[in-house]
Design a protein around this nucleic acid. Structure first.
Lengths: 335, 335
DNA sequence: TTGTATGCGTTATCAA
DNA sequence: TTGATAACGCATACAA
């Protein structure tokens, strides 16, 4: 609607004294154009301030030069999650040097999946990255079967077909966190788990169980939902049930901040009385008192890798396997 | 590249036994089509799973049905800022029921403004929202003068032409925060200010000064940069210079978390010895110990309003004035 | 190496 | 109310 006076290939061609086709070749970097011609065309382009019309190009190439980030999650909590922020950062950094633009697809509150699927099926984007922080949405299966290059940010629960995905080894990460608590002499270690309909919640609980079983210690499990409130409730219950706890493995930093607050409220010193290990190493980990010892996942790198895989798939690569990266224990003051 | 078999208007027309033009009318909800015809066309559309080709449509209508969120800020810190998250949430919620898609434009690390400006000038989007958290970028002036509907998330510093913008009254908000500290009997009130090349940093400092002057009290100012580290340094310096402080007005929640940690480290009780008021009411405000008393800005609503204004401008409205919303003091435990 | 001609899928203008 | 037809700006097969 704006660029009514925007110059076209035609006008550049006229000014440069060549044909439209030649200008097109120059614009697209075709090798077989005489240097002189190239120079003339580029001069004309500069003079006119020519910019290719994306719509016209997309119409004939059938490529849109844009990829979607799909967030099948009406909840605005997703945005304030440092996980999402890191992903976005990694993805956009990888896309920056390419011609591809990033389109954000949020599932509207009414949750009409069909609108989203129709959009993706409509060829408006060349591919999609699904930030499926929450699992078991029945939309995941449909997304996975779309005739469109697609990558998931975590193994999508409940999806049977093989799909490309990028994630950390949540099981091993959790195990490492618990093993650290064991190594500093704690034996009454409880966990505040995440929701079990998410890969992250499920796998981190598994890691906790593995470490406890290997140590021959009894499991004490509280269930949260990856929110601060949920973490608070779970911690309160755990403390009531097992007043003698000496350590807490909390499945996310956000829930860990709540746990720290609850412990302070109950007069328990951290880490002297109760040691606490979180998961994420998000910005929250350094804003707490004491600073949080936590299991770091390289979120930005995951996002970058997600974008790389998608670009490769768009270019024709056949990638349908999960990629798993490792975590790293970051020891600060809480354990 | 994908939708090679995607049905076109032509095919729908053939199946429905009408012309392309008529199908187009039905798709675009033209009132003057016979109900019977509409029904026939819709049946064909459903049967074929027809989805309009956006590129073809954009080519002729010269509208792209997409708007950009521009982040002239290579720093990935922007993403992890709850401010950005809230904005995004508000914008996307407002856009959801419209046909417009959200394109994310991040300035790549090399900071080549020209690429960004060329894209915006190229008619790839119908309008743009600039999240200009940082000010004085010299790109702001160029953005403001683009022949494109544009809205700023804060009064852009250093831009002389009138532009549409949405922000809170940072001056009044800060004043309210300081007045609360005064009302609970504090008199030795320092501030940890934000950077002065940002609207938010500048205005909140002004608000602090106004309140202190009105109370006839001396100003004690430390300068941070809206990061946790900066807040920590500034707080340490303040405490060294004025050991007798009894209150702190910190210009952002993130810096306030750092201040709380420093105070705890120095053995000062909050709020008994030193009362602390933050600014934002982001998720951080409830993850600290004690929970933060802070000045709330309705970030999501600002984002929503930003989108509304942009849509209005795209529709032809001539809006080039700032809109200022008010803040609200949220009293928790730190003051 | 360059130019000509054609078509991509849609909307809009003008007749019918 | 509907249909035929001409753009929209570009890339590419084919010719020269």
């Amino acid at each position: 609607m704006i660029q009514s006076g925007s110059p076209t290939l035609e006008q550049v061609a006229a000014l440069a004294g060549v044909s439209r086709a030649t200008v097109s070749r120059v614009v697209n970097g075709s090798p077989k154009v005489l240097p002189d011609t190239v120079a003339a065309v580029e001069r004309a382009i500069g003079e006119l301030g020519y910019v290719p019309n994306r719509a016209a190009r997309a119409l004939v190439t059938r490529r849109t030069d844009s990829v979607a980030i799909v967030v099948p999650e009406p909840d605005s909590r997703v945005f304030s999650d440092p996980f999402f922020a890191g992903m976005l950062s990694g993805v956009s950094r990888t896309l920056a040097p390419t011609p591809s633009q990033l389109v954000l697809l949020i599932e509207p509150a009414e949750a009409d999946d069909q609108r989203l699927l129709r959009y993706l099926r409509g060829g408006h984007v060349d591919g999609a990255i699904v930030i499926s922080h929450h699992g078991r949405d029945n939309i995941l299966q449909e997304l996975a079967q779309l005739p469109l290059p697609i990558v998931f940010s975590a193994r999508p629960l409940g999806v049977e077909v093989p799909v490309a995905s990028v994630d950390v080894d949540n099981v091993a990460g959790a195990r490492t966190g618990v093993e650290h608590l064991l190594s500093i002499g704690r034996t009454k270690i409880a966990t505040v788990a995440g929701p079990l309909d998410m890969t992250a919640g499920l796998d981190r609980l598994t890691g906790y169980k593995q470490a406890m079983q290997a140590a021959g210690l009894p499991e004490v499990i509280g269930y949260g939902d990856f929110t601060a409130d949920g973490g608070e409730q779970a911690t309160l219950r755990l403390l009531d049930d097992r007043p003698d706890l000496d350590a807490l493995f909390v499945a996310s930093d956000l829930m860990a901040t709540a746990a720290l607050r609850v412990l302070a409220g109950r007069g328990r010193r951290v880490p002297a009385d109760v040691a606490v290990v979180g998961f994420d190493d998000s910005v929250l980990a350094t804003t707490t008192t004491p600073k949080l010892t936590t299991v770091r996942q390289p979120v930005e790198q995951l996002g970058a890798r997600l974008a790389e895989i998608l670009l490769a798939k768009i270019a024709g690569a056949d990638l349908t396997t999960p990629e798993i990266y490792s975590t790293e224990l970051v020891i600060r003051d809480s354990a």
